[in-house]
Nucleic acid binder design. Structure first.
Lengths: 210, 210
DNA sequence: CAGCAATTAGGACAATTGTCCTAGTCCGTC
DNA sequence: GACGGACTAGGACAATTGTCCTAATTGCTG
């Protein structure tokens, strides 16, 4: 109980630091300072920085899994569930504009380092991939469900990257809208009423899509 | 002349190190070792690491500008020029699978740090953006040319991110193909013959697009 | 060849890094 | 109330960091 309290605080602080600054910038001293304990105490709970990284990945993995499970019980239909994913960059736009996607940026850093935990980190992508694949299968697109899942993943990753590079919030809004329109057009016969939208100047119908 | 030789070697090595390992992992000692000179010599040419970063960004900016200029004189038509851009992740697939996109990953890192040079680095994205916008205008899509440019940028960024996270070369091939098909479908009346393609199992027509 | 600035090597420097070690404090269980 | 293991603080430690300084060497110019 006691150990969990401190340990969890360390992992929590590491989670935030890794997201906001990157793994390499997460120093033992920073963690100790953030939690308000001594560096030696951090060392007691985690012998190496890699151990902390593993704990953070595990934390994110569990959180993502639980979130997707909740979406699966909450969402009215598969389309609405996919929409929940599509809207992530919009929901978290403040952070995304500053730090990008937590999963994507971590995987990018670990890939550069050839770090062993890249495999573990990319499993978080794997969660989204499988979940999205199931939703597309529910939509009657079983044959292409995994390909579609990868496409949606890549799309939102690209949006996150450009959004943080240009600090462009309207772009995020426009792309999320485009993704939703694309989703609606995927299975047009599904009967869901296309709610009318007021077109705003900037994102006025930029071509059929991709 | 002499100073240029050593200085350029340093910038060249920094360019490679930043791409392969990330900016924070580029140490003076690494640079000195890579070029085969002393650390003090590196310090003579660049007082701080940030100065090296600026030089690397400038180097990449110039190279990109020259490449795009060359494409603009070489390419038969705008569509073929856009295709050149679309195929970058395929052309450089070995590096992209390992280290992602040089521009995107650098911007991501600098955004996290709140580094001043993020603005400069994102200007490289700006070069592609403006260039692509011009090509789309040439294609007769003047009204949406900038939006389309951003879409293509984001698309290839997403592909690069997922490709390096999953080390998935077939995914790169499939997405590049999808982007080319999308490009061909953008202006169907343009008369360019749609060359027939042998469909391969994995990427068999995964939905209309995005 | 002399002179001078540009270039280089090598080390000094304080600061910070990850990791380890030791001594102490806390708290639940006999 | 004493014991014992979990927890914590604080510092030691070598290694590495970016930056700076000085002396030696290079190579061009006169």
């Amino acid at each position: 109980m006691k150990v969990r309290a401190t340990r969890d605080q360390i992992v929590e602080a590491a989670d935030r630091l890794i997201y906001e600054k990157g793994f390499e910038y997460m120093a033992f001293a920073d963690l100790a300072n953030a939690v308000g304990i001594s560096r030696g105490n951090v060392s007691f709970h985690f012998k190496t920085r890699d151990e902390i990284l593993s704990a953070v990945i595990e934390l994110r993995f569990g959180r993502t899994r639980r979130m997707l499970e909740q979406w699966e019980t909450e969402g009215i239909d598969a389309r609405e569930r996919i929409r929940s994913y599509i809207r992530i960059p919009l929901t978290n736009r403040t952070q995304v504009l500053r730090y990008g996607c937590p999963v994507g940026t971590l995987c990018t850093e670990l890939a550069k380092l050839g770090h062993d935990d890249l495999v573990q980190a990319s499993r978080i992508f794997g969660l989204f991939r499988e979940w999205l694949g199931r939703q597309f299968t529910d939509l009657g697109l079983a044959g292409h469900s995994d390909a579609l899942a990868m496409q949606v993943l890549a799309w939102s990753q690209g949006v996150a990257t450009l959004a943080s590079a240009f600090h462009d919030e309207p772009f995020v809004r426009a792309e999320v809208r485009r993704m939703e329109d694309w989703l609606d057009s995927l299975v047009p016969g599904s009967g869901r009423p296309r709610r009318p939208r007021k077109l705003r100047g900037r994102q006025s119908a930029p071509a059929r899509h991709p």
